[in-house]
Design a protein around this nucleic acid. Structure first.
Lengths: 354, 354
DNA sequence: ACAGTGATAGAAAACGTTTTCTATAAGGGG
DNA sequence: CCCCTTATAGAAAACGTTTTCTATCACTGT
C-alpha cells in the first residue's frame, strides 16, 4: 500500500544508531550475539515506529516467496471449495500463503495461471489439471520439483510428479456394490459427458462391478447429456443437465429401479426432475450420488452418496508439497497417494421391494 | 520455484551484448527509441532462453505488487464463494491477482491477515469485516486509502472508507412484505444469534415492516439458537442450527403459518427438520430464505428467498478498488454503494389457505 | 607482553528489476 | 567549424532485505 512513507529496517537502524544488518538479525531472531541493551532498543524502536517487514525485499533476496500457487477449476464448486479449505488450512499452519486461481476447466487459462504463478516465484504449486492440459504443462509437471497434482491422475503415463488423487475406480465399485446389496439389479447411469479421466474411471468401475456380478450393462441405460461449455458456470450447469437427464429417463418409462449419477450436483438435478414429474425419491426410484458435497446432507431427501475426502486431499497435498519445499536437499522419487472413499448412507437409496 | 537457474534480464543483456536497461525497455514496450535490429535480437533471445520476468524485482522497485488482498469469513460458504468469484473475475480482467484469506469470522485472524497482506505490499484490500473487528482494524480502515469494505457496513460511524454493501434492511422489508402479500400474518423468525450488523438490520427490517402493517411481533415467535463457535465450519453448523430451530418451533405446536429464516442454510436446516417430523413445506408451513445461494434453486422444494447479488458485489468492489489503485492522484471522498435485493420466487412459500 | 579467541557490530554485496543520469554518435543550423 | 539537438544505449542508483565479510574490542592462556 502506497502509504505516506513505509518504515524500513534502515529507518530503525538510523533511529537506534545501529546498522540494517543488526536490525535484521534482531528482528528475525537469528542466532547471533547482540547485546541485550541494543536488542531491546531495536525491538522497542520497531514497535513504536510501527515497523512492518516488506516481504518483497526478503523474497527477492532468497529468490523464493512463501506463497503456494493453487490452480483448480472453480472456487464456486463446493467440491473444490472444500479442497481449497484443506489447502489453506495446511498452508497457514506452516507459514505459507496459498494463491488460488480458477481455471474454469480451460486448458489455456490453466497454463496462463501456471506461468503467472511462476513469475510470482511461488515456492510450490498444487494443481488439479484439466484432462490432458497442454504440452507445455505436461513438460512443466515432469520437470518441476515442487509440484503436486491433485484429484485425478493425468492420462499421460510419462508425467511423473507427486500426486494425491481419489481412487475413483474403487469409489465407483463401492457405490455399485452398495446398490447391488440393496437389491438393485437394474441401474441406470446418468452423466454429463464422460471426458475427464476421473469420469472414465467412475464409469468403468461401475460397468466392471456389474459385470463381476454377472450383469451386463445395457447401453440403453446410459444417459449422457451434453451442454454448451460456454455457459459453464458451476452454478447451475450440471444441475440443469441432471434435470434434463431425469426427463429423458422418465420419457423411457423409468426403466430402472435405481439411478447412479456422475456427481452430487447432477443427482440433485435428477431428484428435482423426478420430484417435479411426481416421482418420489426413493420410494419410486433410488438415486445414488457421488462426491458428498456439503449440501448432499442438507437436501430433501438427504443424498446417499460416495464420500470423497476433499478437505483431506487438500490438506495432504499441501503438507506434502511444503515438506518438499522445506527440504530442498532431499530428493525422493514421486509418490502417489490414493485416497479411499467411504459411503455416506442417507435416504435417497432404498432397498428394492420384492 | 528454485529451478536449476532462472533466466534474468541480465542474462539476456549478456547474450545480446546489450544492457539490462535496454532489455527492460524492450520487454516492457516502453516508449523509448531502440533500433529495430537490437529490439528483435532481444526479443528472440528472450524467447529462446525462455525468459520469465521476476515479479519480485519489479515490485520491489515500484514498492507495490499487483495483488489485491481479500479477507472474507469463509471460502466454503457459497455466499462468499460467489462474491469471491466476482472479485477474481474483475481482478484478472484488469491484470491484478486476488489473494484470498478466510478469517473464519474471528477478529484476531482477520487482523492477522490484514497485516500479512500489508507485508506482501498488496495494491489494495477488500474486506468483509467481522462485526466490529478490532481497534487496529478500525483505525486501519479509516487511514488507508486503497480499501473497500463489502457486504455490511460497520457499526462504528467514524469509519469512513469505500463500501459496497447490501441493503439488508430493504431486503428484509421486501421479504416480509412478500409474506404478508401471500396472506401470512403469523410469521416466526428463526435465526442463529443476531450479532453481526447485517443480522440486526435484517431483524429490524422484519419487525418494522410487520409494525407498519399493524402487526406487533410477538417475541415468543423469535427463535434463536446459539451454538459453539469453536465448532464453526461453514459446512453444517448453520444447517444444524436450523434443524434445532425447527424442533423448537414444532415443540411449540407450529405457532405460525410461515417461517422467515435468517439465511438459506438455516432455511435448509429448518426444512430438513420439518420434513423429518412429517411436516410438509409449503403445505403445512411456508419457509422463506435469505441470500439465494446456488443450492436454494437445487433443493426440494426449491427455496423462495431474497436474492443478494453477491457475484456483482464482488465485481463492483474489485472494480472500484482497482480504479483507485490505478489513479493514485485522484482523491475523491468515500462512496457507499448500496446493492438492491430482488426476490427469488420459488416453491417454499404458499399463499395461506383461508 | 602477545598471539589467539570469542563477542559484538558495522560495511558491503547481492537478489532482479526500473529509472534516472550520463555518454556517444550523427545530423542540422548558424 | 562549432554548438545544439535528437537518437540510441549503457552505467549506475535505487527498492528493502539477508548474508558474507571485516573490524574492533576485551578477554584468556601462555
Amino acid at each position: 500500500m502506497p502509504k505516506k512513507q513505509r518504515i524500513t529496517i534502515t529507518d530503525i537502524a538510523r533511529a537506534t544508531g545501529s546498522s540494517p544488518a543488526t536490525v535484521s538479525r534482531v528482528l528475525n531472531q537469528i542466532d547471533y550475539p547482540v547485546t541485550p541493551a541494543l536488542k531491546n532498543k531495536i525491538l522497542t524502536a520497531a514497535k513504536e515506529l510501527h515497523y512492518t517487514p516488506n516481504m518483497l525485499g526478503r523474497m527477492l533476496k532468497s529468490g523464493v516467496s512463501n506463497d503456494i500457487g493453487v490452480v483448480v477449476p472453480s472456487l464456486q464448486n463446493p467440491f473444490y471449495a472444500e479442497t481449497v479449505a484443506g489447502i489453506e488450512r495446511a498452508c497457514r499452519q506452516r507459514g505459507y500463503s496459498p494463491i488460488f486461481c480458477s481455471s474454469e476447466n480451460k486448458p489455456d487459462k490453466e497454463w496462463e495461471y501456471v506461468e503467472l504463478l511462476r513469475q510470482k516465484c511461488v515456492a510450490g504449486l498444487i494443481i488439479s489439471a484439466v484432462n490432458e492440459g497442454n504440452d507445455d504443462l505436461l513438460q512443466f509437471l515432469s520437470e518441476e520439483r515442487n509440484v503436486v497434482l491433485i484429484e485425478q491422475p493425468l492420462q499421460n503415463p510419462l508425467c511423473d510428479c507427486d500426486m494425491v488423487v481419489f481412487d475413483y475406480y474403487a469409489a465407483s465399485e463401492m457405490a455399485t456394490q452398495y446398490l447391488l446389496r440393496k437389491g438393485h439389479t437394474d441401474i441406470a447411469y446418468l452423466s454429463t459427458p464422460i471426458t475427464r479421466r476421473s469420469r472414465q474411471l467412475r464409469y468403468s468401475g461401475f460397468c466392471d462391478t456389474l459385470a463381476g456380478a454377472g450383469i451386463t450393462f445395457d447401453e440403453s441405460r446410459l444417459y449422457v447429456k451434453s451442454a454448451d461449455l460456454d455457459t459453464y458456470s458451476d452454478g447451475l450447469y450440471e444441475f440443469n443437465a441432471g434435470r434434463a437427464l431425469a426427463e429423458d429417463f422418465l420419457r423411457d418409462k423409468c426403466p430402472a429401479t435405481a439411478v447412479f449419477a456422475i456427481n452430487d450436483i447432477v443427482a440433485l438435478g435428477v431428484i428435482s426432475g423426478f420430484t417435479e414429474a411426481g416421482f418420489r425419491v426413493p420410494q419410486d426410484v433410488s438415486v445414488m450420488g457421488f462426491d458428498d458435497i456439503n449440501f448432499s446432507a442438507m437436501c430433501t431427501p438427504p443424498l446417499t452418496t460416495i464420500r470423497q475426502p476433499s478437505f483431506t486431499m487438500g490438506k495432504i497435498a499441501a503438507d506434502l508439497l511444503i515438506d518438499k519445499v522445506d527440504n530442498p536437499d532431499r530428493n525422493d522419487s514421486s509418490t502417489c497417494t490414493l485416497l479411499k472413499p467411504t459411503i455416506a448412507e442417507r435416504s435417497s437409496v432404498q432397498t428394492v421391494q420384492p
